[in-house]
């Protein structure tokens, strides 16, 4: 069985799994006694038992302060520990925070469409549909936007997800430990073709990556405003496809569509991402 969340293939997913495990273990401190007491008390104080009939009519009050205190205190202590973990891990694993690595990060721009994923590689000048490829051991810095309703970008084997919205960018930093093929999908419903939006994330060796970039460039198939407009029309379950050239500032123009009624982009600083 392939259980990617429990079998992480990258440092981000690994640390996220650690937090899950620690949390469950801490909760067990409360859960185990609850289960034990429930069944133990149910058995021992059942109305039919000799012990129960030996008690007087149970009309007594023994609000036990010590017991009360302990079941406010113990969960509080557990929660304090969890709070420290939450603060620390949330800052360490902020999706916007670049990953520490020996190799410089690689940037990939992502556009969620109805109903496929467009990946633009600004440094390499190529693009792909429904497949993203990058070298293993290299941190990848995703910049994401949508030309579609709200989506969510998720490769469970590598990292937690990040929402993807039109008119704004979000970011996700990810790294794969070693070469492999990982499933990806949108984790937020976006319309009829939503289920046909799965993609694969391929991490490959440096050499294989360079070879793939060269062969994609050689295959031409330009991604410009016209071919983008055709691509953006609603379609689902698309096969993987590649573009050998990508129009400069295509990603920014997609972003800007939602910013203003006027089509002019001069002098506008919207804090958008410039490659």
């Amino acid at each position: 069985m392939n259980i990617p969340v429990l079998d992480p293939q990258g440092p981000v997913a690994l640390l996220e799994l650690h937090v899950m495990i620690i949390t469950v273990v801490l909760c067990a401190i409360v859960v185990v006694p609850v289960f034990f007491l429930l069944f133990y008390f149910a058995w021992r104080y059942r109305a039919g038992s000799p012990r129960a009939s030996a008690l007087h009519l149970p009309d007594w009050d023994h609000d036990n302060l010590a017991a009360e205190f302990s079941w406010w205190l113990v969960p509080t202590i557990i929660i304090v520990v969890l709070a420290i973990i939450a603060w620390q891990s949330t800052h360490a694993l902020d999706p916007y925070k670049p990953l520490a690595a020996d190799v410089p990060p690689m940037e990939i721009d992502v556009v969620a469409l109805d109903w496929k994923w467009l990946f633009i590689y600004p440094a390499q000048g190529i693009a792909s549909i429904n497949k993203v490829e990058f070298p293993a051991g290299t941190p990848v810095h995703f910049y994401l936007t949508a030309d579609a309703p709200m989506n969510s970008f998720w490769i469970p084997a590598l990292a937690g997800q990040i929402m993807v919205m039109p008119g704004m960018t979000t970011q996700l930093n990810v790294m794969a430990d070693h070469p492999g093929t990982y499933a990806g999908m949108s984790a937020n419903i976006s319309g009829e073709g939503f289920s046909g939006m799965s993609f694969t994330a391929d991490s490959v060796s440096e050499d294989d990556f360079d070879a793939w970039v060269s062969s994609t460039k050689a295959g031409a198939n330009p991604l410009d405003q016209n071919s983008y407009a055709a691509l953006a029309a609603p379609s689902s379950y698309l096969p993987v496809a590649y573009y050998g050239t990508v129009e400069q500032s295509l990603f920014d123009s997609i972003l800007m569509k939602y910013m203003s009624a006027s089509s002019s982009m001069e002098g506008m600083d919207m804090g958008m991402h410039m490659p």
Partner: peptide, 28 residues
């Protein structure tokens, strides 16, 4: 009794989800 058994376990799942980094994986 059914409530105590199930709700406690579901509550553990909730505490897991309350950790933002765990939720990044398990949201939705």
């Amino acid at each position: 009794m059914g409530f105590v058994v199930l709700f406690t376990l579901g509550g553990v799942a909730g505490v897991v989800l309350s950790e933002p980094v765990a939720d990044y994986q398990l949201h939705n």
